[in-house]
Amino acid sequence: MNMVRVLERTGADVRYDAKQTCCGQPAFNTGYHDESRDMALHFLDIFDGDGSDYIVAPSGSCVTMVKVFYGSLLELPEEYREKAERVRSRVHEFTSFLVDVLGKNSVGAEFHGRVTVHDSCHALRELRIREQPRLLLRNVKGLELVEMDAADVCCGFGGTFAVKHASVSTAMTEEKVESILRSGADVVTGVDSSCLMNISGMLKRRGSAVRCMHIADILGGSGS
């Protein structure tokens, strides 16, 4: 709900269509294009022509699926190509929407703590989102932004990779967690919940006090 609050604070009229489910990325990433395509068509049916100007999601990964993979790596039937094109141009990742579309660099938030950013791979490399979250965080009252080393290195999640190659995934997450601990931050944030869930899973297992928070929860907050 914090994303909704932030968006409404900027004066946006936020709508939510309860018929929506999933963009189809999990199946797509695992190679199941038929299943993924079914979900993609469902997604496009719901969002195309729904009367809204923009589609905003608090996930670089889901946005990548729609913006980058629909119609290119995931083939769509002829009659859905235009639909996909229209939806693609309207869909935005949350921080990119605030900064690149609305031109905001501050959302009037307050948060007390040392925060470090983990760059999620899809957001960083498919959508080129790197500065947007940092810009917004720098303008949060009371927030100290610290950089970890290797912020742009994958956390090791990778969807089914984390289960299929759990030991490699774990080794990658260990390095990420060590970078975070070295940074001295109390909070690690990012634009994708899945990475944060993965990182948080190991931080908790290690009994660390460092918390993982989605950036919407920081920008939507008014305290620590």
Binding site: N29, G31, H33, C121, H122, L124, F161, H165, M172
Partner: peptide, 28 residues
């Protein structure tokens, strides 16, 4: 499948091969 598909490979490739997208294609 032995990849987190992070895409760092494609970003560094001097001839811009979209390596991780090819991995996605192979998975399919």
């Amino acid at each position: 499948f032995a990849s987190s598909l992070c895409g760092a490979c494609a970003d560094i490739c001097p001839v811009r091969i979209d390596i991780h997208h090819h991995l996605l294609d192979w998975r399919h």
